[in-house]
């Protein structure tokens, strides 16, 4: 137990402090300008003085991420079901699906901006476009990897397609669905920030762009810090949901 605390808390904290210290010394020793790389303390001051703006913009970004993520779930999962259970649909649309992923996401952002405007819609569209793919692929993998013998058991008990889906295939796909969701939430954050870079008028991404254009490096870095906290926060939420909904999945607990 004690060893656990040392490993999980003390070591990472020490590593973090060393990194911050080296960063600070580096800036001082090489006399770097604040625009190139601000000292950690200055970034911290900027966070303290600008936190109302950071929080409210952060909230905009957070909402967009969550909506985009939900979109990729409610659209991605049914699409995965259709594509695993219908051979024709799979043959018709799977290549297209792969093709959409070869398009660089940043390149499609300006087009989506034209379609959806500078509001939250275009951010959602980009977040969805970038995060639905792992959702579909992992859900499909999960639905295809139901243990053969469980399906045989179901058949011997004369289960209907619906019973097999609800009682066996879907629950057995849940661990895969969650691993897709963990990738998707990370990608959703990236998608939203791309959207805010390209044309958003709010959110941490656009705050970062504005700070950059005003050569306010500490604020830009402060936005960056908030963005990474936001990413971690959302990821942890998905992991918590996973532990809550599929406590029987012991891949991480042991």
């Amino acid at each position: 137990m004690n060893g656990d605390i040392i490993k999980k808390i003390i070591y990472p904290t020490v590593g973090f402090i060393i990194t911050i210290f080296l960063w600070d010394r580096y800036v001082v020793i090489f006399d770097l300008s604040e625009v190139v790389l601000p000292r950690p303390g200055i970034i911290f001051e900027s966070i303290l003085s600008e936190y109302p703006a950071l929080l409210s913009e952060g909230f905009e970004t957070l909402l967009a991420c969550v909506y985009g993520f939900i979109l990729s779930i409610v659209i991605g999962i049914p699409m995965a079901v259709l594509m695993t259970d219908s051979k024709p649909l799979n043959l018709m649309f799977y290549p297209l699906l792969i093709a959409t992923q070869s398009v660089p996401k940043v390149a499609i952002a300006p087009i989506l901006l034209v379609w959806f405007g500078t509001g939250i819609e275009s951010k959602l569209a980009i977040a969805f476009f970038i995060s639905f793919f792992p959702m579909i692929v992992d859900t499909a993998t999960g639905l295809r990897s139901t243990p053969k013998e469980l399906l045989e058991l179901a058949r011997s008990l004369k289960c209907s397609y619906f019973q097999i889906f609800v009682k066996i295939r879907f629950p057995s796909a849940l661990p895969h669905i969650f691993s897709g969701a963990k990738v998707a939430i990370t990608l959703a954050v990236i998608g939203v920030v791309i959207g805010e870079f390209v044309g958003g008028s709010d959110g941490l991404g656009s705050l970062l762009m504005v700070a950059n254009s005003q050569i306010n490096a500490p604020l830009a870095w402060a936005a960056l810090v908030f963005l990474s906290f936001l990413g971690i926060f959302l990821y942890v939420l998905v992991v918590l949901a996973e532990n809550l909904l599929i406590p029987w999945n012991n891949t991480y607990s042991k």
Binding site: P147, E149, E152, L153, I168, P171, W248
Partner: peptide, 10 residues
Amino acid sequence: FQTPTLMPWR
């Protein structure tokens, strides 16, 4: 069956 094939979620 050869393997127990219990449903891990039940």
